[in-house]
Nucleic acid binder design. Structure first.
Lengths: 236, 236
DNA sequence: CTCTCCGACATTGTATACAATCAGGTCTAC
DNA sequence: GTAGACCTGATTGTATACAATGTCGGAGAG
């Protein structure tokens, strides 16, 4: 049997975790077309492992919703359609409205969290004034911003739910930040959110986060619609 | 090998799904003490199956957070502590505040959903006037109430997140409904929520759902505290 | 008496053999 | 020509053998 070489650098030392990580990575970045069929033996060949770890990996991915299991007939990768993407943006909104409201009302829990928020402020002020970054980097920073807020609210379960959502939205955040001026408007929105939180302005914080998230949702919505329209016009 | 007989009536025809279902059931109902250790071979014996399906089941439960994997040392059942339970109640609150706000603003999406809400109203009116039910049944109906609201809002992803939370809270809902008069106050709160939604009274709906959920959280909180205190006083 | 090292044991990790199931196509009866 | 039984190949489902790894206790040195 061949070593782990071909598999993503795995912190857990077992094959099936590595396989989960790589497949998830591929699926999230849309390296597979939607509805792409995955079979166990095929994956065994690509990873040079036996069926046991592959099976376990697929089963985990299936419960996480990244692939769908066809009984006795294998698996297909399960890409979210436009409706589900927008739904995920709304769940984000629900969770984050609650988060900023909480933060604005009660303030960050401890010193560390306060420092984190200060750091966020610096990051996004710098971003506003200075260097233009790639969409991928912006998407990463944006995700970090929102997860740091949840972290500061001190609710681990909420953070966990937010993370599972963000995991699925990664690619769409990149699409979002491809839009001209989106970076700049995000900076303003993020700074406004932080300001409202420190000023304990609850309605302001809610409004700001809502604007931020809905702008993202709208950008993604139009981008996908455009892409589909283009694809259609080429065909005909 | 022995048949599925001993396993919960499984709709999916494979062993590992059945094992997941049974184990989850046991864990949710606290049939295992917290930190109870589970080993593969032990489960093989209890279910009369080989290690393959058991392994897959455990791995799924681990990703769902029902058990924790100790590398190379087996699994322990992962019961939520009091803090996490309260966190889950807050995530519920975040999601449901958004739900009722959505419903109050835009109304239920279609005829079916409208009918569902009417049904809810009837159910909880009957409950208010009539028969007293067992805590278990009330917990079930309560869960159904809240999930029906999410359903009516038409956001499948939101419903999915709510369900994973409710799954973990089942036992605590029962504890909640053990409290005297909790059934009655729940009826009033639920009816108020429905009334506010149909009257498009957004702040009213938000306040009502908040009261409903926080009362539950408080009941569970004090019940657990009491139980722990009792356990402690017995010991000393 | 204590500390370290070693080895047996318990447990998971991986590979593979065999059984069960299902889709799709072919062959036959009518 | 068409319906239906049947065969076949592909694929997952299950069991088991073997490898790797970590735990725990006991023996021996200091």
């Amino acid at each position: 049997m061949i070593r782990n070489d071909r598999i993503v650098e795995g912190e857990p030392s077992n094959l099936s975790s590595s396989i989960v990580a790589t497949l998830k990575e591929h699926i999230i970045h849309w390296h597979y077309p939607p509805e792409h069929r995955l079979t166990e033996v095929e994956l065994c060949k690509t990873f040079n492992v036996s069926r046991s770890p592959v099976r376990e990996a697929l089963r985990v991915l299936a419960t996480d919703g990244f692939v769908k299991k066809l009984p006795n007939r294998g698996y297909v990768v399960r890409q979210h359609n436009i409706v589900e993407i927008e739904e995920l943006y709304e769940v984000r909104l629900a969770l984050e409205l609650y988060t900023v409201e909480y933060l604005a009302k009660r303030g960050p829990l401890n010193k560390n969290d306060k420092e984190d928020l200060v750091k966020l402020k610096r990051t996004w002020t710098d971003l506003l004034n200075g260097s233009s970054k790639k969409a991928e980097e912006l998407a990463r920073l944006d995700t970090l911003f929102h997860e740091t807020l949840a972290q500061a609210a001190g609710n681990k379960m909420l953070l966990r739910h937010l993370r599972t959502i963000n995991e699925r939205l990664m690619l769409f955040r990149m699409i979002d930040f491809d839009k001209t001026d989106r970076a700049k408007s995000t900076c303003h929105q993020h700074l406004k959110i932080l300001k409202c939180i420190t000023a304990q302005d609850t309605p302001g914080a809610r409004a700001a986060i809502q604007q931020n998230i809905e702008e993202g949702r709208n950008n993604v919505h139009t981008a996908i619609k455009d892409a589909l329209a283009r694809a259609y016009s080429i065909k005909t």
